[in-house]
Design a protein around this nucleic acid. Structure first.
Lengths: 227, 227
DNA sequence: AAATGTGATCTAGATCACATTT
DNA sequence: AAATGTGATCTAGATCACATTT
């Protein structure tokens, strides 16, 4: 299974998902859910990245959380609400499994492991959020850019993915010029290369030497959802 | 019941908590749990405020989340982990009900409503975190100070509570001088008054007119945990 | 000592603006 | 047009430091 949450299910539950979920390709910029929309499908990314965005009254926005193959979109369903936590937008294109909430309810009834694995992701997601709260108040623009790139790299297949500097600046609520400076630095150091939105991680070591400790903590939290 | 989560339980579950929980007074600065400590008790504040702090390797720290009568300390227990999300410290002194995890397990078994109400708080807590992620990257020091004060006011009894400017500066990772400027302004505007750590909200309207929209969203999320 | 007030100076990242390349 | 590069200038909040009041 390309999605970690699904991969940790028991074989029979996995079969249920394989038979009932639909695999879709998601394009950069696709709006999955508006803020506080009713969740009709839970979405398990294979190799895409989906952002939950905050939109302020004055029009400014930032990413509140990002979701990749380590998790799924639709947590409110199991926390007992059913409405999304924010505008869900595709940042890095790729594939994802979509399961309707009706089918999910069946799976929750039939397979004990489904709720358990989902709640474990809720915990890891909470840790991601907490780290982001701290990171946003303590760490530099450079560190935050690198952290986003490393998380993205963990979530896609291969070393190249589609993501413009403009997009990064919107995610982190930074000026594009600030992101450009960060990316130029990384490119000169040999860590990344990019060309009109096609970004390649050429040397992870270099990124890891510049990222804040938040990266590793979030990464470890995501791995801890394994049984 | 002085704690909202407990107040939303069924009468028989409430009785269980009243009979088995211990009410303790918590002092400013008390360390409840270290980071990643095993949760032995779930703690339901009556009129105190507890912060979950992030501690970075270089010694800097910020508040990741705060908990008052709208919630409880020990969420990891029901998300299937059992270790705290960070250093839990008493910020505003007051009383709280402590229930051992062993007793909580009994309550979870016997009273269906306990898990349900706790999960609903998990959702509201997640919304608090998401808002803080956004707030920390978009809003000013002044707005963040006011927001903290309004949330505190919602959680205590009366209009006066113990909280120094130094403490606020540690919570928000701001300089004490910055917090002092914010507080002086508020005092001059007639919104608050303070004297050696004793802070009084003299006019909520003034605070509300200066706070960012995050305050209201978090407040509403906390109220939505009601049945 | 603990809490608060304030002043001089620096800097990361902002606003505003324009230029280049595919 | 979409993506990237860069320059002049401003500012919120930082660092560093010291002073006052209970």
């Amino acid at each position: 299974m390309e999605n970690s949450v699904l991969s940790w299910l028991q074989p029979d539950a996995q079969r249920f998902f394989r038979e009932n979920a639909i695999v879709r390709h998601l394009n950069s910029g696709d709006l999955i859910y508006d803020d506080e929309a009713v969740v009709t499908h839970t979405i398990f990314p294979h190799d895409c990245v989906i952002s939950i965005m905050a939109e302020m009254a004055d029009g400014r926005s930032v990413e509140k959380a990002s979701i990749g193959r380590e998790g799924f979109v639709g947590l409110p369903v199991i926390l007992g609400g059913g409405r999304t936590f924010g505008r869900c937008v595709v940042q890095v294109p790729g594939k994802a499994s979509w399961l309707s909430v009706a089918d999910l309810d069946v799976a929750l009834q039939e397979f004990h492991c489904v709720r358990q694995v989902m709640l474990r992701y809720a915990k890891s997601f909470t840790l991601q959020l907490m780290e982001s709260v701290a990171c946003n108040s303590l760490h530099t623009a450079d560190q935050r850019v690198v952290r986003w790139l490393l998380h993205a790299h963990d979530r896609v297949d291969g070393d190249t993915f589609y993501l413009t500097q403009e997009a990064i600046s919107n995610l982190l609520a930074l000026r594009r010029a600030t992101v450009n400076a960060a990316c130029s630095d990384l490119q000169q150091a040999g860590g990344i290369s990019y060309h009109r939105g096609h970004l390649t991680i050429t040397d992870r070591q270099i990124l890891q030497s510049r990222v804040c400790e938040c990266y590793d903590r979030v990464r470890r939290a995501a791995l801890c959802t394994a049984p």
